[in-house]
Amino acid sequence: MQVLEMEHVKKSFNGAALHVLRDISLHVDEGEVVAIIGPSGSGKSTLLRCATLLTEMDSGDLRYSGQTAARSGADGRAVYADKQTLKKIRGYFGLVFQNFHLFPHYSVLKNLTDAQISVLGRGKTEAQQRARELLAKMGLSDKEDAYPCQLSGGQQQRVAIARALAMDPAILFFDEPTSALDPELTGEILKVIRALAEEHMTMVIVTHEMDFARDVADRVIFMDGGVIVEEGKPEEVFAAPKEERTRQFLARFADR
């Protein structure tokens, strides 16, 4: 079963002046790791925001594990499911933000347990057990009583990943998870994501880390100007891009 199906997604801002997504379709299989690359303003983040229901699509279909979150109506506009269905669908995915967005007034442990308790209805003991498991996995067992402001950026992002995982999502989205970090801290995040990939966690990762995308992804998608220009296995896209735009983009990265 496909975990995520997005069909013919279109989105523009400022009325219809700025077309950010022009007919994008994206399917993700269970256990698949998809990396989305592309220049700034290519629509990568907007695509993630549409997938995670933070931004409403103008038109298109959105399904999680066969459940419809939105579909194009007769007039072509996207029609969203009712509140109850959307609440259920939010349980299918998690999102790791570029800027972490941890809850600053909660300790690390509470950041991980609160949504489990108040959204999933888990008991406190069960929630704490799950949280501690994940903190151990992230190498942050000694930080459960710390507050986000006491942690480095890399540690905060690992807590954010653990917070998303604690909800047991079927698919996890990453929106440039290392872009807000100092270069020496990106490694620890990439290591965590790599470990998740080895466990066959279904993931969609928007990233500017080309080497990482090549290593970790099963499929690479190159977006530019609101469309998918090229997609394929990383070795194909990186070593032998078919499209001129992909070649130009990758060449810019190779120059650095």
């Binding site: 995670t52 229901l53 933070l54 609440k87 939010r90 349980g91 995915f93 998690g94 999102l95 933000f97 800027n99 967005h101 941890l102 809850f103 600053p104 007034h105 609160d114 949504a115 108040s118 959204v119 999933l120 917070r163 998303a164 909800m167």
Partner: peptide, 30 residues
């Protein structure tokens, strides 16, 4: 309060009321 706080809460599945009372209000008080 940064919009990211609302978005993080929404993605985690908090209702609007939960977001207000658990996430926004305590930070506002400070």
């Amino acid at each position: 309060i940064p919009i990211g706080q609302y978005e993080a809460a929404q993605v985690l599945g908090y209702s609007r009321l939960q977001t207000y009372f658990k996430i926004i209000l305590p930070q506002m008080v400070k």
